[in-house]
């Protein structure tokens, strides 16, 4: 075999080696970045603060109680019958984020509406019992929600979120 073909063979081998080195370095760099990026996510103790219990016995019909859950305001509202009827009357096809009122409350507990009181537009706290639909009105950019806290008007894309919750008894709710 001549020396020439030998050297060509060597060069090809060397290219594979170079590419392998680049690839390995790239993967290594990506793996090294991962923990740094993850360190900016919620820490374990923040994630652990995930449930609170509320006594709802003192809430009058037509009023609400506000508590903090994961740094967010949560409203527990005891709705009068006319608000529930109003929410049920709405034609679902007209809604931006269609959802039945009954899907937003616990069965048999329709008077209790539990929502994360944060506008789904840009995160302001909307004012309850106001706006054109007697629900919530967000002063920041004018989003309006109805008595089931569903988005009806304005820039927000979604209904007010319902946190995961359960009734521990008739007077205590556990959120989270």
């Amino acid at each position: 075999m001549s020396q020439k073909t030998d050297s060509v063979k060597d060069e090809n081998r060397r290219k594979i080696l170079t590419k392998t080195a680049y690839t390995t370095t790239g993967i290594g760099a990506a793996c090294a970045i991962y923990p740094f990026v993850m360190s900016m996510n919620p820490a374990e103790d923040v994630q652990a603060l995930s449930s609170v219990e509320i006594d709802i016995s003192g809430i009058e019909v037509g009023s609400a109680k506000k508590i903090m859950w994961r740094g967010k305001p949560v409203s527990v509202r005891r709705r009068p019958q006319n608000e529930i009827d109003e929410a049920n009357k709405v034609d679902l096809n007209t809604l931006r984020d269609p959802q039945k009122d009954s899907d937003r409350v616990k069965k048999g507990k329709e008077e209790w509406l539990v929502t994360i009181e944060i506008c789904t537009h840009l995160g302001c706290v909307p004012t309850p019992e106001s706006g054109e639909f007697n629900g919530w009105f967000c002063p920041c950019h004018g989003s309006q929600y109805d008595t089931s806290a569903r988005i009806r008007k304005g820039p927000a894309p979604k209904n007010l979120a319902i946190p995961p919750y359960e009734f521990l008894s008739d007077t205590v709710i556990k959120i989270g």
């Binding site: 996510n41 919620p42 820490a43 923040v46 994961r70 740094g71 840009l122 302001c124 920041c140």
Partner: peptide, 26 residues
């Protein structure tokens, strides 16, 4: 709150980006 929430407008990854920016849930 308002400015960081701008990133929640992006579909699918929006919410996780905001949580990552905050380092929490608010």
């Amino acid at each position: 709150t308002v400015i960081t929430n701008l990133f929640s407008a992006f579909p699918i990854v929006g919410e996780s980006i905001v949580t990552w920016l905050w380092g929490g849930f608010s």
